[in-house]
């Protein structure tokens, strides 16, 4: 999945230079148009967060960076200034804790299960693995209602926001495909050294399958950070409220404080965008390996 090859055959030299320059220009034009489509809403979010609410929704001038100020951000923090409303930092902390717990938990639990399916022999394994594969198609939304029914006694806790999402059939499946490729000799050597299955797994197998862990970590993170439906059902207390739920505080204002909504949205997304920009390579690699492997 590394880059670089495919382009060489195109490098013919000679008379076609002018045509190619045209082509390149066209290519850039297309790229610019496409990028604009993807980037404009992002730009609008960020610029809007610095403009007065009254000017956010005003046709094309919504894109013009005038009258910039931090007023919307101040408004957000003013509104969230007491224990009664909850604090922005609190919401962010809840989101971070829940997401971290889910990502960490799912890396450990699902990789171990996948390893067991891919590399260990035990009775009933095949049928159970088949069941796990079938489970990959059940969407969470489909079981949200009965799940809410089962755990309504645990509402308003951090744990109930995280625990249901740790075990994940698709992650098991991804790990499984990676583990199939681990050379048997390595495990054999570890076993001859007297390592038990736990040590073999954590000290020998995990280090050589890091890309698998990066893939699952990133995909899990993306799904979890914006998780909306489950918190809506399970959380009402401001002390355990995650960020996606808190947006509606600002959407329900009269008149709508669109500037504050966008400011909140920007604070919600910018840390993720920053992480994404830094780790873009891994990010891309992990998504592509989800397909090549999956």
């Amino acid at each position: 999945m590394t880059t670089s090859t495919a382009l060489k055959p195109r490098q013919r030299r000679g008379s076609m230079k002018r045509a190619r320059r045209w082509q390149t220009a066209l290519h850039y034009l297309l790229l610019a148009v496409v990028s604009l489509f993807f980037f404009l809403p992002v730009y609008y979010l960020i610029i809007g967060s610095f403009r007065p609410s009254s000017e956010v929704l005003s046709g094309l001038s919504g894109f013009v960076p005038t009258n910039l100020s931090f007023d919307n951000y101040r408004g957000v923090f003013d509104h969230l200034s007491s224990d009664a409303t909850g604090h922005f930092g609190q919401f962010a902390a809840v989101s971070i804790i829940v997401t971290t717990a889910v990502v960490a938990g799912s890396l450990i639990v699902n990789s171990m299960a996948a390893y067991s399916f891919a590399r260990m022999q035990w009775r009933g394994k095949k049928i159970i693995f088949l069941l796990v594969v079938v489970l990959t198609i059940i969407p969470f939304e489909a079981v949200a209602l009965p799940l809410y029914y089962m755990f309504s006694g645990q509402r308003d806790t951090i744990a109930i926001q995280a625990i249901p999402f740790i075990a994940n059939a698709f992650s098991i499946f991804l790990f499984y495909t990676f583990f199939l490729d681990v050379p048997g000799e390595i495990e054999e050597a570890a076993r001859l050294d007297g390592a038990g299955p736990l040590r073999t797994f954590f000290q020998v197998v995990v280090p050589i399958t890091k890309p698998a862990f990066a893939t699952v970590a990133i995909l899990t993170f993306l799904a979890q950070w914006g998780s909306y439906l489950w918190p809506v059902l399970m959380v009402s207390d401001p002390t355990v409220r995650p960020l996606p739920l808190a947006i509606s505080i600002f959407q329900n204002q009269q008149p709508p404080e669109w500037g504050q909504v966008l400011a909140f949205g920007t604070m919600f997304i910018v840390p993720v965008l920053a992480v994404f920009l830094i780790f873009q390579r891994w990010f891309v690699a992990s998504i592509s390996s989800s397909a090549v492997k999956g």
Partner: peptide, 26 residues
């Protein structure tokens, strides 16, 4: 002998409780 099922059990337990059980309940 039990390593295989042991390794798989935490995830399977999670799936059983949070996916299979609610579906059965549905």
């Amino acid at each position: 002998r039990f390593a295989g099922p042991l390794f798989a059990s935490p995830a399977l337990l999670g799936l059983a409780i949070f996916l299979v059980a609610p579906f059965v309940l549905a």
